[in-house]
Amino acid sequence: MKMKSIKTAVLKIGGNGFTRALATKTLLVVLLFSMSQFVRPADSASSLFPNIPGWTAPADIQSFSPDNLYDYIDGASEFYLSFDFQNLQVGEYWDSSNRSVLVEIYRFRSPVLAFGLYSQERPLQGNYLDIGSQGYRESQMLNFLAGAYYVKINSYDLAEAAPPVLEQFARAIAGQLKRPAGLPNILRAFPEKGKIPHSEKFTARNFLGYEFLHSGFAADYELPDRKFSLFILAAENPDDARAMLKRFPETAGWEQPTPTEAIIRVKDAYLGDVALLRKGKYVLGALKLADAGLQETYLRQMAEALPQ
């Protein structure tokens, strides 16, 4: 029930004082019940910032929406918005030595979108930690992913004490968020052989520079004699996947592939060698991998490992 309609209902209550009070109380109960349907505990600011022994919890929590995110992160905000950023809460903890720890909690529309932004920012090499879905630490900061939340913890005053303190914060916040561990299941479809660790990415829009490809997952590979990438596009249904596949070579300005080939091979004007294979609603691809045997091996492996 919307606030306005409840308010209107209260104003319209007639009768004597007792019946008015009773009706008003009933409506308030309905109102509170209705609101509880919309406000999830994990979204309230206080529950996102747990009490941490030895530290004073944030007195003021700053909140940013898609409309004013640029006030906080300037031009970087556009990239966040492309991953359907929903909300940012920022709070600062203090200890008795006047040292501070800044916590930024970004929420996205879904865990996959949160992974997308996280994957675009994480380094290939780093001190990776088993916190939330995944996390890593770099000198005075620790970032981790937890479901639809992407958490950044920074301190500038801790020096050598930073690693344990940052981990203490991260584990407390991850515990508070109570999101299941692990990255999106679809990433398991990328074969392990030759995969560059932490190179998996999700792009939310205009994947590979083509609007019609929408979103996609990609991972980079390195074998002794070559570097290439594999990707997975998840369409709405098999028909959409077929349509996407059909548009790919057309848009790139190349001739239609031979329809009898299971794996479609094109030489895209921008992307170079592209091999494509459809399985159900998925389109799998290999970029800059000219070897037909390797294309076959990798794409078939991916097709077998896709989520059912």
Partner: peptide
């Protein structure tokens, strides 16, 4: 590939920032 294509198409100036995508 997009940045490469931009340079090859005649664009000369690329603008980035220390903080973009960390």
């Amino acid at each position: 590939n997009l940045v490469r294509a931009a340079l090859d198409a005649g664009i000369v100036h690329l603008d980035t920032a220390h903080g973009y995508q960390r």
